[in-house]
Lab assay of single mutants.
Amino acid sequence: IRCIGVSNRDFVEGMSGGTWVDVVLEHGGCVTVMAQDKPTVDIELVTTTVSNMAEVRSYCYEASISDMASDSRCPTQGEAYLDKQSDTQYVCKRTLVDRGWGNGCGLFGKGSLVTCAKFTCSKKMTGKSIQPENLEYRIMLSVHGSQHSGMIVNDTGYETDENRAKVEVTPNSPRAEATLGGFGSLGLDCEPRTGLDFSDLYYLTMNNKHWLVHKEWFHDIPLPWHAGADTGTPHWNNKEALVEFKDAHAKRQTVVVLGSQEGAVHTALAGALEAEMDGAKGKLFSGHLKCRLKMDKLRLKGVSYSLCTAAFTFTKVPAETLHGTVTVEVQYAGTDGPCKIPVQMAVDMQTLTPVGRLITANPVITESTENSKMMLELDPPFGDSYIVIGVGDKKITHHWHRSGSTIGKAFEATVRGAKRMAVLGDTAWDFGSVGGVFNSLGKGIHQIFGAAFKSLFGGMSWFSQILIGTLLVWLGLNTKNGSISLTCLALGGVMIFLSTAVSA
């Protein structure tokens, strides 16, 4: 259960009878995928790494000078000259100064003066180019299975845990398959586009800190620079940016070097996208990844198990997540596992009318040892309800109150669905055939309105939902006002479609 501690969480529900669903994975976010007769899966884009970055340009932001020398000439005696002028490691300046009897010249006039100092770069920052084909995306998957609280967001041991898996995709191999043991396998067909235009970005490294910066900004930095990788004795261009020549006297000129420019660069980098280094690879934390999940090989585990009949206890007080759902960790005293956990939410304890829904599909106890633990997640209705676990006299209950409203949740879900469709863009549509167009249209309606429909009408039977949709269509056909007619027709059509397409 990876997503319960992530604030940016998206719930995606598969269409009834569908074998695939489109998701948008982004750094700092987590996606929970639910479908009829399929286990619930949490998917998170953990890291995006980039390798084989080529150094484009380096800037010196802290330097020192040494070996200063000057040469001067009297008027009419030609130009002052130093051998160091031809050495690229030196920074030199030529000027004219007033000369006369007082400073060793027989004539009054302008004399030539040249001053040089050896330039040494102490600290530099480097910009590297990123090729999209060198990106690698690491995705962690977790099935809502027989897990306890100690396994949440624990990325170790996934090789031997059938509840978890790690997959890596690249532009050259965008397809992967996550093996989930008894739950089958989940196929991923990803489109490795981060949403960032790397043709316009460089990877900047300064003092063990890293950013993504725009090329134009990078090339306009007014500091000494050299092109390409460091060859040991780089040729620094624009050395004068960190060196200041003071007022010249008759035979000498003082040279000083400016202080470190790291603070000024940090100020200019305010708002830039931060990154990290992992050995020789860069780690990015921006952008998104679009994936199509193929769920035809994914299956529920323990459908044929019998119900657990022994007593359950709450190991922890049920807690609310950031998303309005409830996490419950229970301990089973029996030894008759594997068995299914009898769990439901009810409005009252007399009729036990089921409300809400299970995020953890078909929760089971897989071990036959005593005191096995299991964590599950529920989506309670707004208002008061009861969490009921167990059967008969051994069942345990917990009162729950959820604040908020169904309308607010439906609106929030619609906005999130619209954002998801905007990110998917043209990849969500198939114009290759008439059937493809209608299929894409259905998927689009489901992406945007599916979660809201589930919130508003999830407790009704599909037949009642179709009746309401048919009534809206009838009202649309018999209303003389054009805008009201079109609105009723659209709402009725969407409702009829979703009542037959969205899983219960």
Rank of each mutant, 00 (worst) to 15 (best):
G14M: 11
G259I: 06
C60H: 07
G450D: 07
G232C: 00
E276C: 14
L135N: 03
T120N: 13
L180K: 09
A280K: 00
S142D: 04
A268E: 08
M206C: 04
V437D: 02
S51A: 11
I341M: 10
S368W: 15
A176D: 07
F314E: 03
L45W: 09
F11A: 03
E177I: 07
L456K: 09
M345S: 00
V303A: 14
Q131A: 12
G100M: 10
Q447W: 08
T360N: 07
G383K: 11
S51H: 14
V50R: 00
Q89C: 12
P338K: 06
A117Y: 03
T126W: 08
A117Q: 04
I445L: 15
K246T: 10
T351S: 08
G111E: 10
A241E: 03
N208I: 00
F119H: 10
S72N: 13
T19A: 13
V303C: 00
I65S: 01
L441K: 05
P380S: 12
P318K: 07
R94L: 11
D42N: 14
K246C: 15
L113V: 10
I4D: 10
K128A: 05
R357C: 04
A451C: 08
G469S: 15
G404L: 02
E412A: 07
T76N: 03
K246E: 12
V364Q: 03
E26Y: 05
Q331T: 09
V330H: 12
A54E: 06
L269C: 11
M277F: 13
E55W: 01
S142T: 14
I1Q: 05
L242N: 05
E244R: 11
F119C: 08
L273T: 14
A250P: 11
N362A: 01
L293C: 02
S440C: 10
D336V: 13
H249Q: 07
C308V: 04
G493Y: 01
C105Q: 06
S173L: 12
K124L: 11
M68A: 09
T369F: 09
I365V: 15
Q331F: 09
R57A: 12
V326L: 15
G450Y: 09
T369K: 02
H214T: 04
L107Y: 06
C116V: 08
S58N: 14
T325R: 03
Q147F: 10
A229C: 01
G383H: 09
P234C: 01
L25C: 07
V303R: 06
L135E: 04
C3P: 00
P380F: 13
G232Q: 10
F438P: 00
H446S: 02
I130M: 13
M15H: 04
N478Y: 09
G5D: 08
K316Y: 04
P338D: 08
G356S: 01
G492Y: 03
G425L: 01
F438S: 07
S260K: 08
G106M: 06
H288T: 02
K419L: 01
L293G: 00
G181W: 06
Q85D: 04
Q253D: 09
L298S: 00
I130R: 01
F497G: 01
S461V: 01
I448E: 12
Q465V: 01
M277Q: 03
R2F: 08
G493H: 06
D189L: 01
L298T: 02
N439P: 00
N52P: 00
Q465I: 02
D83P: 14
H398K: 00
T40K: 11
V21A: 03
V24M: 11
A272E: 08
E133Q: 10
L376H: 03
P132C: 01
M345A: 00
K294G: 03
A227S: 15
G228Y: 08
G271S: 09
S260Q: 11
W211E: 09
I396P: 00
E62S: 13
V364N: 02
D247V: 05
E240Q: 02
T76L: 01
E244A: 09
N154E: 14
N481W: 12
H249S: 12
L45F: 05
N207S: 14
T88H: 08
G100P: 03
T49L: 03
V169R: 01
P354W: 00
W236S: 05
F497T: 07
G459N: 10
F119E: 05
K395L: 15
S58K: 01
G417N: 08
T479D: 03
A452D: 10
E377M: 08
N207L: 09
W400N: 11
K409G: 00
F431I: 14
T360A: 11
E159I: 02
L113R: 00
Q331K: 12
S403Q: 00
D200R: 00
T76F: 05
A361Y: 12
L441E: 07
G100V: 09
Q331I: 14
V343N: 02
G195C: 10
M277R: 06
A310G: 15
N371C: 02
E377L: 01
V343S: 00
C190F: 12
R299Y: 06
Y90T: 09
D384V: 10
C308S: 12
G444S: 13
F411N: 12
E244L: 07
L352I: 05
P132L: 15
V265T: 14
G17Y: 05
L45S: 12
V494C: 09
L107A: 04
T500C: 12
V169A: 09
L441W: 09
P318Q: 00
G417H: 11
V391I: 10
L196R: 01
A250M: 10
D393T: 04
P171T: 10
K283R: 02
G469Y: 03
V21Y: 02
G334E: 12
A178T: 13
M345P: 06
D247L: 05
S146R: 00
D22H: 06
W474Q: 09
G404I: 07
L376D: 03
M140C: 00
R193H: 11
N237F: 04
G145N: 09
M140V: 06
A63Y: 10
V41C: 02
T160H: 15
P234Y: 05
Q253S: 14
T254V: 13
Y81W: 04
V473F: 11
A413Q: 15
Q147V: 00
Y386V: 14
A264S: 12
S260H: 12
T366D: 00
V153R: 08
A250K: 08
S433L: 11
G492W: 00
F463W: 14
I468E: 03
N208F: 00
S122L: 14
A268Q: 13
S385N: 11
T351V: 14
I389Q: 11
G383Y: 06
R193N: 14
M421E: 08
V347L: 14
G106L: 07
M460I: 15
T427S: 14
G187D: 08
L289D: 04
Q465W: 10
F218I: 12
V143F: 06
N52H: 14
P224K: 10
T500S: 15
Q261N: 10
E133W: 09
V23I: 15
V355M: 08
T160K: 14
Y158R: 13
V169C: 05
S483K: 13
W211H: 08
P174Q: 04
I496K: 10
V31I: 12
I387D: 07
S499Q: 11
R94K: 12
N481A: 13
I389R: 04
G476W: 08
A69F: 04
R2M: 09
G450L: 01
H144L: 08
D22S: 02
G436L: 00
M374F: 03
D393G: 09
P132E: 06
F198L: 15
R57M: 11
R9I: 08
H398Q: 15
H148I: 08
S485E: 08
H27Y: 08
R57D: 06
M421S: 01
